[in-house]
Design a protein around this nucleic acid. Structure first.
Length: 366
RNA sequence: GCACAGGUGGCCGAGCGGUUAAUGGCAGCAGACUGUAAAUCUGCCGCACCUUGCGUGCUACGGAGGUUCGAAUCCUCCCCUGUGCA
């Protein structure tokens, strides 16, 4: 399958670039690594530098100078991760900014407005990422909210999706400058719905069916990898996947470890994103064909071998474990950069191999 | 030489008569990280031993004596460092 818009082949892994940057790695390096689509975050970009500022600058792609695809998460995950700084009502979520403590009210409509202003290729419905564990009634309540918000997200999005800042768009304000990032060729932004339901199969099923009925451009499975055991994650995905239309992208949010993403991709998941390869890299954990490598460990102090002997990424071709360990010990910023480059290369490599072996029997072109 | 100020565990630095193997920080060692409040967080960090326990023993606050039931903390002498004056 190929994602609509900038023809992204799937299954695909999407590096996370919350605040308009895949931490520690410049865009041109991301391109050379073969990253085809990256994430941005609605909540974070709304707070700083502000979505209207980004709109005025021509949209997210242009602002960060990223010519390939982007997806913005709706802020739904922040409802979960900033649980101590927020208050949820049917209407929306009141956040207290983690930056300065100021109050901000997010509703599905507001999230859509922000995401349209940012103008990523794919926007996400505003949802509540249900925490784990959540008992039955809590999961039901949370799902009720997410489903109501999905409908509101979709309606508002459909009514305003032509307000993206892209040059080809009639309402765009930045059609004059001929920038590579502006080559959107009459594309439209799409919106994905998000399945929730805690760890209850019937709730998951109900969630999926209702979303499909609403007719989104793609579907995500959210609320996973929030602390539950791995087999439960698997079970939920297996339950939901068959209910989602195979001709539209199916995205499992926030996963996972290398073996997980391979497994899910082989099950038919088209898209995945995760902060793990980038965050773990900055913390000194490398994922390799030989397993986890805690590069800061003393044992690598004089190890002249490459991080992963079976990897041909630009880091493994050139640097030794001893050097990477030293950079980590010395607190050099290059440490995070090199570690992240390797981890992303590793993740992207896994997906490339899965794609090759699946030999895209379901190529859908735009 | 005189006058002040100091000498504390690898380093910096608290403590100034008793819950003190000794607050903190750094360095070191190990672990965690899954739609990013994360270049973050957690644990260990004098030595030895074991039944790994808010366990036992030993050593420790420049050195040597002393006061005291008890001293890193008080006294004496000595050594050393910094600053100022000769």
């Amino acid at each position: 399958m190929t994602l609509p818009h900038r023809a992204v082949e799937t299954p695909v892994f999407m590096p996370v670039g919350t605040a308009g940057s895949v931490k520690a790695v410049p865009q041109d390096v991301l391109e050379s690594l073969g990253a085809e689509i990256i994430l941005g975050n609605t909540y974070h970009l709304y707070l700083r530098p502000g979505h209207e500022a980004i709109r005025r600058m021509g949209g997210l792609h242009r602002f960060i100078s990223w010519p390939r695809a982007m997806l913005t998460d709706s802020g739904g995950f922040q409802v979960f991760s900033l649980s101590e700084l927020r208050k949820v009502t049917d209407e929306g979520v009141k956040f207290r900014s983690h930056l300065d403590g100021s109050s901000h009210f997010f509703t599905p409509e507001h999230s859509m407005d922000v995401q349209i202003a940012l103008g990523a290729d794919i926007a996400m419905a505003f949802d509540e990422c249900t925490e784990y564990p959540a008992d039955r009634s809590r999961a039901e309540e949370s799902l009720r909210l997410t489903m109501a918000w999905a409908r509101r997200s979709l309606e508002h999005f459909r009514a305003h999706q032509d307000e993206v800042p892209w040059s080809e768009n009639p309402r765009s304000q930045n059609r004059d400058r001929g920038h590579p990032q502006d080559d959107m060729g009459g594309l439209t932004q799409s919106l994905f719905g998000i399945v929730q339901g805690g760890m209850y199969r019937d709730l998951r099923r109900e969630s999926a069916e209702r979303l499909v009925e609403m007719d989104f451009d793609g579907y995500a499975i959210g609320g996973l990898s929030v602390g539950e055991p791995r087999d439960l994650t698997m079970e939920m995905i297996a339950e939901v996947l068959p209910l989602l239309p195979a001709d539209k992208p199916r995205y499992v949010m926030g996963v996972g470890y290398p073996d997980e993403i391979e497994q899910y991709a082989r099950m038919g998941v088209d898209m995945m994103d995760c902060v793990l390869p980038t965050r773990a890299a900055r913390h000194g954990l490398l994922f390799t064909s030989e397993g986890r490598l805690t590069i800061k460990n003393r044992q690598f102090a004089e190890d002249q071998s490459p991080p992963d002997p079976n990897c041909d990424c630009m880091v493994c071709r050139r640097y030794t474990r001893a050097y990477l360990r030293h950079l980590m010990q010395a607190g050099e910023v290059l440490s995070g950069t090199l570690n992240t480059i390797h981890n992303l290369a590793y993740y992207l490599g896994i997906m490339r191999r899965v794609r090759d072996s699946l030999e895209s029997e379901k190529t859908v072109t735009n």
